[in-house]
Design a protein around this nucleic acid. Structure first.
Length: 290
DNA sequence: CATCCGTGGAA
DNA sequence: TTTCCAAGGAT
């Protein structure tokens, strides 16, 4: 159940792991959960300062659950995808009310929380509790595609097969497996990178099927690149920016000023209301939810 | 399964 | 400048 790849990655990670704050021994499973929410599609260097503030301010799930939505959204700042902040807030409430203020260690219980999917559930089990759980993120999928399958990059996700691939790499015991899981992610993040992999620095190049194949270029289907300019995502971001920066409710005119296309603007404002990222006051103004 | 959901830094 | 993409999840 272990693997040559794991045997190389494990000691490399023990020696070379970045000193990220959520990896320090004093970090609680709650701290790990918060870090995983923030790291969903957001780079490490932008998460670090925000995570530090959150841990000081809301050291337990019940602390965050007790905070007003507006405070949570302002503290989230410009990390992006603010619905994650809403889901984390809701997850904190569920943990406080249904799990005695303790983050579950069971993968199924974790996956039942808002905003927690296959990746985040296993990441919390592995990094928060030191359990053996196959953690499959974009880094790990790329490392496995190269080192195991000899491909230049990972194709579309195949959830079951990807989990099985990683499960087959992990050592049998919890402690080692959790370290290997972190190590595979770290390898993908700093060495086996998407654009220019640093095979000369890779601890696993001797067992890498991609290197053995002569590093062939990826030929499969490319994941579609998302545009941003002119999308609802951009408009929602601009609207939310106004709401975050204002200490109280703003008149509709303040929101109208950020985007000229009235139809798109209204659609986006509606979607923010639906998502719980915005509220309308009795006098018709708009604000972050209380 | 494809698309949507923010933001900003690097190539 | 444009393009890519960064520890995903929900629908």
């Amino acid at each position: 159940m272990s693997s040559p790849l794991a045997d190389l990655v494990l000691p490399w990670f023990r020696a070379e792991a970045r000193d990220l704050p959520w990896r320090r021994p004093e970090t609680t499973p709650w701290g790990v959960l918060v870090s995983e929410f923030m790291l969903q599609q957001t780079p490490v260097n932008r998460v670090e300062p925000i995570w530090n503030v959150w841990m000081q301010r809301w050291p337990r799930p019940s602390d965050l659950a007790a905070a007003p939505r507006a405070d949570v959204l302002r503290a989230w700042g410009k990390l992006g995808y603010p619905r994650r902040a809403i889901r984390l807030h809701d997850a904190a409430a569920a943990i406080a009310e249904q799990h005695g203020d303790e983050v579950p260690s069971d993968v199924d219980a974790l996956e039942a929380l808002p905003g927690v999917g296959s990746y985040t559930a296993r990441a919390v089990a592995a990094f928060g509790y030191g359990l053996r759980a196959p953690v499959v993120d974009t880094n790990v999928r790329r490392v496995v595609a190269r080192a195991v399958h000899g491909a230049g990059d990972a194709g579309p996700a195949r959830v079951r097969a990807d989990l099985a691939d990683v499960d087959a790499l992990l050592p049998p015991d919890d402690d080692s497996a959790a370290v290997v899981s972190a190590g595979l992610m770290e390898l993908g993040a700093v060495v086996c990178t998407a654009r220019t992999p640093h095979c000369g620095l890779c601890p696993a190049s001797s067992v890498c099927a991609w290197v053995a194949n002569g590093r062939p270029a990826y030929d499969g289907p490319r994941k579609p690149v998302q545009g941003f300019a002119g999308t609802d995502r951009q408009v929602r971001g601009k609207l939310l920016d106004v709401l975050r920066d204002s200490p109280g409710p703003v008149p509709r005119a303040a929101l109208d000023a950020v985007w000229s296309d009235a139809g798109q603007r209204d659609r986006c404002l509606d979607s923010l209301l639906v998502d719980g990222l915005c509220e309308q006051t009795d006098d018709g103004r708009f604000a972050l939810p209380a």
